[in-house]
Design a binder for these strands. Sequence first.
DNA 1: CTGAAAGCGCTTACAG
DNA 2: CTGAAAGCGCTTACAG
Lengths: 351, 351
Amino acid sequence: MARSGPKLTRIANTLGVSAATVSNALSGKGRVSAELTDRIRSIAADLGYVPSQAGRALRTGRSGVIGLVLPDISNPLFPQIAQAIEFAASSAGYGVLIADSRGDIAIQTRAIERLIERGVDGMVIVPRRGTRIADVGCPVAVVDTPSTPGNTVAADHWDGGRQIADHLVGLGHRHLLIIGNNPASNVQNDRVGGLRSALREDVCAETLWIERLEEVNGKGCSLGLAAKVAEGVTAFAAISDLHALRALTELQRAGIHVPEQASVTGFDDLIWSPVVTPALTTIRMDMARIAAIAVEALVRAIGAEEPEHPSVGAPVCAPFSKVPMQLVVRQSTATPPTTATPPFVTQGEQP
Amino acid sequence: MARSGPKLTRIANTLGVSAATVSNALSGKGRVSAELTDRIRSIAADLGYVPSQAGRALRTGRSGVIGLVLPDISNPLFPQIAQAIEFAASSAGYGVLIADSRGDIAIQTRAIERLIERGVDGMVIVPRRGTRIADVGCPVAVVDTPSTPGNTVAADHWDGGRQIADHLVGLGHRHLLIIGNNPASNVQNDRVGGLRSALREDVCAETLWIERLEEVNGKGCSLGLAAKVAEGVTAFAAISDLHALRALTELQRAGIHVPEQASVTGFDDLIWSPVVTPALTTIRMDMARIAAIAVEALVRAIGAEEPEHPSVGAPVCAPFSKVPMQLVVRQSTATPPTTATPPFVTQGEQP
DNA sequence: CTGAAAGCGCTTACAG
DNA sequence: CTGAAAGCGCTTACAG
């Protein structure tokens, strides 16, 4: 609880006015004379008055807090999301309570319950792969893919894939390897779909799903990328910067020069992308805008609700919307080598 | 606000008992007969009763929420910290409200104020470099370095540095380059200090501070690591996995084999460390333990407080404590090359 | 323009 | 063991 500083009543007594007047003056509803409003405000400031959220919440039925439910806080994209949501929410006067699903669907459900118990006015949910968010009992905005129906705000992952494909094909690449992790993810599927959709007839593209490969060869296994280069692949389009990084280092370790012998692209512009050598060409989502849309929709839905008669069963909130993605070209992509079979050297296997 | 579900009174009426009895039964303070307690609990469960935090908070003066103030949510270490604090807090029955300082000290102050306004019972602060947390007005636990005085819980960064040094020297390295970012950071200084302290007389170690170099050569400039290898450096000890990654890729790009020609180590075991090739040898903090200690101290301090007479000016809370770090040996470190000047090839500059 | 009153949902002494 | 009462700090109709 905020330290019991001065209460509203204390200000009222100090000035010899009523609590109602102080409340009205402070909230600026305009039913108090300008002069008195000024005096009340200045006294409140002097006294360091901080209104009690508990009192206000109990009275208004609004906590001023929204929940943020994430599939897995340890996801490298989480910082961007959390920062953007926190900024959007606090700009709108809301606090943000976090909840971690730890990748587990039962925990996700429990996390949502806990948030409800804490009295959130609404929540932003980034659902775990394959989860459909059922009726939660408060307004909900989902951040996922545009292909997920309902209340969803999302980056246009499909178009991001298209942009990557255009960039690579434009540079002259005709043989790509698309690297994904898990085809059960809507986001990944959209990215891959967009990529493939933009490929011309004369472009050959295979898709490698890392989790499938790891099921066979064990976690952290080689992706066999050097062999792909030998087969003629000149560009590796990863569905996330994490996999792009894995590809880049595996290629470098095998003595293949990026981008001279093979180009590498990622997704999301994660923190290390500008830092590695060569820096990664990638696609950036406009998280600030996604967060702004999600929070705005939430705030509107909260405002529209009758606190006394909540619209149970109608948690619909955010309008369906797609936010464009932006290509960031860095050093990891270049024109493909001119020789069909470049004379690269494959150096010793990893110890 | 949680959807206006059934209130306490509703349960009381349903059973024809008083609200006080329901409250006592539910809170298990034991002043109600076992049989009645059972009946009350089962009705509450049937009705889906969720106690109102607002009502409870107003009455008890406790919100059941703690704040988490971070220097910069986009820091790659943030996910680990946030996840650990969230877990520790929710295990203790607390919610976690996040606040982002965005690296700015004024915003940090404002973020703390907002948390107070939201009525947090206490907060965990990971301070911005060089910040001393003044009297906040509620119990505070600081997560920083043991070398920071007051309320601090921290990993033993110094000892982590020592472990890295021991590992590298044990492998036979005698010429190291320590890579830090900013010497104004307590954490970084401790890590570097620990590293140096464990070096034997016959080991030569220079320290490179990236921010200083970038002030001269521009952000994202080369670290000149290939030249260092030519000078005889056989191991690069970075103060964070982010810098280790930068070093690794710069070396690879220059055609230097890691770990055959040069070893690379990091700190923090960030998400990509096991994923890159070669996987990074690093040091892992026990964030779960740090979070548990911080939250436990906070909860104790909150409990010890008289809500009516808060101990203004005495936010002291967490006991000074150091949590050990753990060395994770992976493929990026090996014995140094036997030839004094290895015959490596420096390949073309970055485009 | 200002104030008196009621009440949000809970918990905690205090009686019985 | 159980209940009646008061009150946490605020805001919102409603009077004046």
